[in-house]
Design a protein around this nucleic acid. Sequence first.
DNA 1: GTGGTCTAGACCACA
DNA 2: GTGGTCTAGACCACA
Lengths: 123, 123, 123, 123
Amino acid sequence: MISIDLRDRRPIYEQIIDKFETLILKDVLKENEPMPSVRSLAVQLAINPNTIQKAYNALENKGFIYTISGKGSFVAKNEQVVLEKINELKNTIRQLFVKAKDYGVEKKDILNELDKIYKKNER
Amino acid sequence: MISIDLRDRRPIYEQIIDKFETLILKDVLKENEPMPSVRSLAVQLAINPNTIQKAYNALENKGFIYTISGKGSFVAKNEQVVLEKINELKNTIRQLFVKAKDYGVEKKDILNELDKIYKKNER
Amino acid sequence: MISIDLRDRRPIYEQIIDKFETLILKDVLKENEPMPSVRSLAVQLAINPNTIQKAYNALENKGFIYTISGKGSFVAKNEQVVLEKINELKNTIRQLFVKAKDYGVEKKDILNELDKIYKKNER
Amino acid sequence: MISIDLRDRRPIYEQIIDKFETLILKDVLKENEPMPSVRSLAVQLAINPNTIQKAYNALENKGFIYTISGKGSFVAKNEQVVLEKINELKNTIRQLFVKAKDYGVEKKDILNELDKIYKKNER
DNA sequence: GTGGTCTAGACCACA
DNA sequence: GTGGTCTAGACCACA
């Protein structure tokens, strides 16, 4: 489910956070579903448990998971977190549009990219 | 011309690289124009010359500037580098479109953002 | 494994880059093998860690090693890098052949040198 | 006759030395022929006269030119210098052959390169 | 004056 | 422990 790219320049715990955020936002991991235990994931990825713990703590702080001590961690996915994340994404996209315009990229080129992803008559 | 944001989490030398890349790509700095000297920029930004040097080396490796030892550094801006950079930008944008679709963002929302930057009837 | 020649006119960091490139291309250092840590190599060669760091950064940029921050650096050796390096070498040799011809060196003299290295009936 | 590549990473005076050595060794500049005056070359190349002077001094030290004060510099080309230079070149070539063998380049590949320069039945 | 290299030494994030 | 960044400061070659 989760894999780590050692060649990736980002720190491991950040990659883990990112992977789980994506899985939760894509609804692959549903609300209240149990997260893999810190230990099992550490073994599976051949990574120090401290690193996994650090990632889980961050995910909890951000509101993506909740922990019941003695039972484990579970997917939280409150609606507010999802909206925040989507807004953040829109902002990033808008900034890149500004950059693109500055560099002389034409509007039609971007529309072209957009149509590759959202097919022609899709919403 | 150049300023450093100490609150920015990125390292100083990376901010400098980024600033100059943008200035060169936006054609604010024209081909063969002299770059500020390492020392003068270091004084102006109140930063150690080694840090500036590191940024300039990276800019030279990437093909944005060329250096004549004993004379200074100058804007290179070969066409290939510009095209590469623009392609890279388009790729990033496409990946974000995929992410947006995955998260359930609708096409019209993105078009909306696009029209904020490239006004309605602009190319 | 690695040694520095202080009489060599090339800067220290360049010598280090060169030594490791050779070890990797000769397959003395195999893929994914750990590189000596920056600090340990600095102690061993009695050289400042910054200088080693500079060499390792260059090796990473060139694709010879990859770095996991907090864990260390490892031999990358992707096939493309090897091929590039070999091509570069062939080009250098060809240019020297041109120079030799210009200077009036005869073909048999070069063949003679070649046979000293690749023994008579070797491939 | 002479041109400088500002993008070349080698110092200017070294490029000048190299260019003249080549011209003399190729017999383009014949013995006792006058060298361009320091001033005229400085103007022509838009370079500081000190830099030209430094190159001429080096060429004189190496035995490629001789100077008659008040009259100018002239091509020397003594036979010994030529032989030294050719030997140096052969050594460089031999070292590259060793490197090539180490990297797994086959003998026939090098012979192939050689035949590109010295046509098939040439001496 | 200009860039290039190097040292000594510090502090930080990450594993 | 490991790499990454940065400072202060020195010395050198080159123009």
